[in-house]
């Protein structure tokens, strides 16, 4: 996984609550067996006016000019500003894969759905929870035509705004460490192999039926 330390980028405001993972990446694109290549179909239903299909030449598709990512000042955005319950719905990791592939590294919202939130950290995306009134003020600030650029510092847990002001944010220690160092958490868990085996032995004693192999 790519690590995340400091990121500077333009903020795109997506003013809509309960953005679900079907909206982030529609199901027809889940037929891919790879982790990359989802970017062109991020928010497919909102971005284009026609129905997208895998393998389509997206360059020739009709664009929805009203959609935020299609507007000139947000074209290169890498920070997404969103409303509550962002990422609700399916557990598809294709949603963070699509956001990352498009170029998003930071998400700002008052709340995220649990599975999606978790999936972001596994892919080098930093989802940041901010209070509702702060999110409201960011929506106001980003709607003033000019590109609005912020710098997110994970180690300091701070967001530097164009005004020079700082916002701070919370997150778990474990997630922070993994992201900062781009750690492979499977390798970390495998270091605990002896503990896992010991757990299995003791559990097998108490509840032997749990270890009946399906083979």
């Amino acid at each position: 996984m790519q690590s995340f330390t400091i990121h500077t980028g333009i903020v795109a405001p997506l003013d809509r609550a309960n953005v679900d993972t079907d909206l982030i990446i529609p199901k027809q694109f889940l037929k891919s067996v790879k982790r990359t290549g989802f970017g062109p179909n991020l928010f497919d239903q909102l971005r284009y006016l026609d129905e997208g299909q895998p393998g389509m030449e997206h360059g020739s598709r009709p664009i929805n000019p009203d959609f935020v990512l299609n507007k000139e000042q947000y074209r290169t955005a890498s920070v997404l500003l969103a409303r509550e319950n962002f990422g609700c719905g399916s557990s598809r990791e294709h949603a963070p894969w699509a956001l990352l592939d498009y170029g998003f590294r930071v998400l700002l919202a008052p709340s995220f759905a649990d599975i999606f939130y978790n999936n972001c950290f596994k892919n080098g995306i930093l989802p940041i929870v901010l209070a509702e009134d702060i999110i409201d003020s960011l929506f106001l600030a980003t709607q003033h035509g000019k590109a609005y650029q912020v710098t997110v510092d994970l180690a300091q847990q701070q967001i530097l705004l164009p005004t020079g002001a700082h916002l701070t944010f919370d997150l778990d220690m474990f997630r922070k460490e993994c992201l900062l160092q781009g750690l492979d958490d499977i390798a970390l868990t495998l270091e605990k192999a002896a503990l896992i085996t010991a757990y299995e032995e003791q559990r097998r004693e108490a509840c032997p039926w749990l270890f009946a192999d399906l083979l």
Partner: peptide
């Protein structure tokens, strides 16, 4: 619980 693909691998 539902999990993402990275966790499936885990």
């Amino acid at each position: 619980q539902g999990i993402g693909t990275s966790e499936v691998e885990h």
